[in-house]
Design a protein around this nucleic acid. Structure first.
Lengths: 352, 352
DNA sequence: CTGTTAGCGCCTTCAT
DNA sequence: ATGAAGGCGCTAACAG
């Protein structure tokens, strides 16, 4: 009764039919091959009864298709990537794919290893949230012709589609929000210099200042890392500077955590003593000492787009044209920006 | 020059030796088979030159070993699971394994599907953070004899090892902290009734009250879900009750988010109007309106233990004895508990 | 409507 | 010190 069926051959033997027929039925090709309803039913019933599921490894070897997608992120513990990963996994599974999760530990060497590892595992495609500043290992990897999509950033010069936030607009809106509240000494604590995410955000910040006839003071653009420590260090530095800013734009959630720590240690309150807007909304943003105004990235949408583009490329056998999709972020206004004008600040998210 | 080598056969042909020899060298068995140093070097050099890596799918089929571990979590966007996943991935990779990430969406049906999916994908082992209350599908799954470890909870009655926090002690310490601060009407907002995590925490809470000669009022133990909504709903209810508590123990980070939302809407401040201790420390815990006292679970340790037990079971070919490892949490004292005695509250984490 | 055969790329016997 | 052959479980090509 509770016989174990290890493979398609055994199941076929039990039913006195050929493995081929079983395979065809199980792959929904009964109609294509005009297999009799009786046989079809027999196979389906037996498969259920013996709880038989085809060995996907053997299938993968035969078809040269593993129905597996590699996902490389710099830090799965970062809520942004965790959310993106959740939707990617969901969307992939909905399409029959599983996700091999790889954490590059924000290390470019590790990322390079991971790319090779995933190639060896014969994933059908890769979604990569790149790290650091070099792209040599990525262009090397692209030679393998494994369909891939970059998320979070875009990689100028490389022939690989990407899905990222419209970071320019996000920073522009945030900066405009400060300006509307009457701030003019607005600092910007940035992440890794030279990558698209950072460059675009800084550009948005600069342009917002310029377009409102404010001068861009380069000493107000500080930092070189998306981590908490950089946020802390730069805030300490800015607080000590002769011409202290009244507002800080933090280009990542971790940076803003560092800003908060530094302010807290200095006994300064948000927004009374310092205004702050952070990139990346979080579940807790609303519950901070003062609920934080944030630039929220549309994580689900980024993930969905990435999976869709990747699957298209997989199914069409490589690159359905290079796309650089930009997803519009949303400025969520809470209470971390002080109104210097003493009149109500308006929501500017609809302007631009 | 830049010839592509698709498989071991091609590489062997290029070197005028047999695939067998190449395979042996590449698997570090050159010595076992006394393959000449010259041949060994030749193979190694060629492999590097042509950037050849064995097809792990074919290898998996032959060896019946995929060097792959399935990880099922209820919600990868939950920081607790994201952190655990990070360490699991790291430890697994260090040992040559990759992680197939599956999000069960806090849904037991999905979890059941996922178990089958992973079995079909021939993972060498599974780490499962179970959902809901039923275990039928899990005991069914265990018949497949795939090495598995449960994390976050333990499953009484099932023959599967587990690694979880010592939740009893965690809740006990938190409750004692309230008591030491002079609270006696302490509410407990719980998660899913009947699962070990919840039962143990509630037991710890009850016992702490009893051991300090406080009566346990069952109307103070409320709720049935680890989500934010439950935290909100129960807090609203408690605030409306005739005998309002002065303190709330929230049995999850999401519950405490709900508690904060309800308190905030009611215009109540932590800790002045209500004291709160939450399970699960978070990066932002220290930056909340009032820095939150939390019971921190040792995520890295849980993850490391789980991987270690799993790998032992994989290598020894099944269950190296059933273990239910409990990892001691840590009470992190900040400023979310009001001192009702008007004298300094001491750190009680060293008692017990 | 169904079956036979061959081969995906690898590793392991068995042979030399 | 090295090879040849077979087979892991599956499915597509080629019969009928």
């Amino acid at each position: 009764m509770d016989q174990t069926v290890r493979n398609i051959k055994e199941l076929a033997a039990l039913l006195n039919i050929s493995p081929t027929t079983v395979s065809r039925v199980l792959n929904g090709k009964a109609d294509d091959y005009r297999i009799s309803p009786a046989t079809t039913k027999k196979v389906l019933d037996a498969a259920r009864e013996f709880n038989y599921h085809p060995n996907r490894i053997a299938r993968g070897l035969r078809l040269e298709k593993t129905e597996t997608i590699g996902l490389i992120v710099p830090d799965i513990a970062n809520p942004f990537f965790a959310h993106v990963a959740k939707t990617i996994e969901f969307e992939a599974r909905r399409n029959g794919y599983s996700i091999i999760l790889c954490d590059s530990l924000d290390d470019i060497e590790t990322e390079s290893e991971l790319l090779k590892l995933l190639a060896g595992r014969k994933v059908d495609g890769i979604i990569l949230a790149p790290v650091g500043t070099g792209t040599g290992h990525i262009s090397e990897f692209l030679k393998r012709e494994i369909p891939s999509v970059v998320i979070d950033r875009y990689l100028p010069g490389l022939d690989i589609p990407s899905v990222s936030t419209d970071n320019y607009t996000g920073a522009y809106l945030a900066t405009e929000h400060f300006i509307a509240a009457g701030h003019s000494r607005i600092a910007c604590i940035q992440g890794i210099n030279g990558i698209s995410v950072n460059t675009d955000r800084v550009d948005g910040y600069r342009d917002a200042l310029k377009n409102h006839n404010l001068t861009v003071d380069n000493s107000m653009i500080a930092g070189d890392d998306f981590g908490e420590k950089n946020g802390y260090d730069q805030t300490v530095r800015l607080l000590g500077s002769e011409c202290r800013p009244t507002a800080i734009l933090a280009l990542s959630n971790l940076i803003s955590l560092g800003v908060m720590r530094a302010l807290s240690e200095a006994g300064l309150k948000i927004p009374d003593d310092m205004s702050l807007v952070s990139f990346d909304d979080q579940p807790y943003s609303a519950f901070l000492a003062s609920p934080m105004t944030t630039v929220e990235q549309m994580k689900e949408e980024i993930a969905r787009e990435a999976v869709q583009i990747l699957l298209e490329n997989i199914n069409s056998g490589r690159s359905a044209g290079k796309v650089n999709k930009k997803i519009m972020p949303e400025l969520i206004i809470r209470n971390s920006v002080k109104n210097m004008r003493k009149i109500p600040v308006r929501d500017h998210s609809s302007h631009l």
